[in-house]
């Protein structure tokens, strides 16, 4: 008998009012110990998927299970294995951070207090002030602590580093990696590839309610285009770059050359550019929407 996966969905669908297809036929399996990145633009169906997993909404069709526990018929036990950070976290404004965490701990029933205190110290949670006085980032920290404080087998995080400064983003990534190293599972939803690529093993891409692609994060990054802007000391010949595999020259403006290139072509781009005197070179990851466009273009070519 196969050990049940951390997350297993079969034909999971959610339709609102008979016409808004928030999620269409999702078949997804996330193994134990995996960090799974769930990527998509806003409104693509990421939060709908998560809320179905938590039993907050009920599927129109299909089913979802967490560690083999059906989220609909066995939701309470399923949620017992879960820690959840909502994308739009709303806490009790009048409570202090300590009171809020204490209240949530009582609601949970069993919490590892030592772990909770350690998490609070690690993230620098403000415990003694009313939550209404806290910044977005400081509220987010409380949300993170409550998601981890009972050492859940599966942590579901909806945009976890939103509002956090870069140092804390790193701390959270480290926390995610440690959690995965202990064999626990992380389901990480985000609209930014940047947020998931450093921690996720696999990435699923969802768009308009449909899972477009599931891939190892490396291969996704390889396909993801970079926007490269090179400023030369004097105008360079763009054809030198246009000939490289996968590279497209977007514009030439005097000595400034703009092109898009996938990661494997970057070496060729830099070496071609090195023949000239370079004033500046900027390479930026393309945003997710462009990766989608790229995926669709590939799909069209194949189909």
């Amino acid at each position: 008998m196969l050990e049940p996966a951390a997350i297993d969905t079969v034909g999971l669908s959610k339709t609102y009012g008979g016409k808004v297809h928030a999620l269409v036929g999702l078949d997804l399996r996330v193994e134990r110990g995996e960090v799974f990145g769930y990527l998509g633009p806003n409104g693509a169906g990421k939060s709908t998927t998560i809320r179905l997993l938590l039993g907050l909404i009920h599927p129109t069709a299909g089913r979802a299970s967490v560690f083999g526990l059906d989220t609909r018929t066995n939701g309470v036990r399923a949620r017992g294995h879960l820690g959840y950070l909502p994308g739009d976290l709303r806490l009790s404004d009048r409570l202090t951070g300590r009171e809020q965490l204490e209240s949530l701990a009582s609601l949970r029933g069993s919490v590892d207090r030592a772990l909770r205190d350690e998490l609070c110290a690690r993230l620098g949670v403000v415990l003694e002030r009313p939550i209404r006085q806290l910044s977005r980032g400081n509220r987010q920290k409380i949300g993170l602590v409550q998601a981890f404080m009972h050492r859940p087998e599966l942590v579901v995080l909806d945009e976890p580093t939103a509002g956090l400064d870069p140092l804390l983003q790193n701390e959270v990534r480290a926390l995610l990696r440690e959690t995965a190293a202990e064999g626990r599972t992380i389901f990480l939803s985000s609209h930014s590839l940047d947020e998931v690529q450093h921690v996720a093993d696999r990435v699923g891409i969802i768009r308009a309610g449909r899972l477009v692609d599931v891939d190892a994060v490396e291969s996704l990054r390889e396909r993801a285009l970079r926007h490269v802007t090179i400023t030369f000391a004097e105008p360079a010949d763009p054809s030198q770059f246009a000939g490289l595999d996968g590279v497209r020259v977007v514009s030439t403006d005097g000595a400034v050359l703009r092109l898009s290139a996938p990661e494997p072509a970057m070496d060729g781009v830099v070496k071609a550019a090195a023949r000239y005197r370079i004033v500046d070179l900027v390479s930026q990851p393309a945003d997710l929407e462009e990766i989608f466009l790229e995926l669709y273009r590939e799909g069209d070519d194949g189909g």
Partner: peptide
């Protein structure tokens, strides 16, 4: 309405 039920109901209670 205030969005505070989401976190509460994500906990293991009926």
């Amino acid at each position: 309405d205030a969005g505070r039920l989401e976190l509460v109901l994500s906990y293991p209670l009926r």
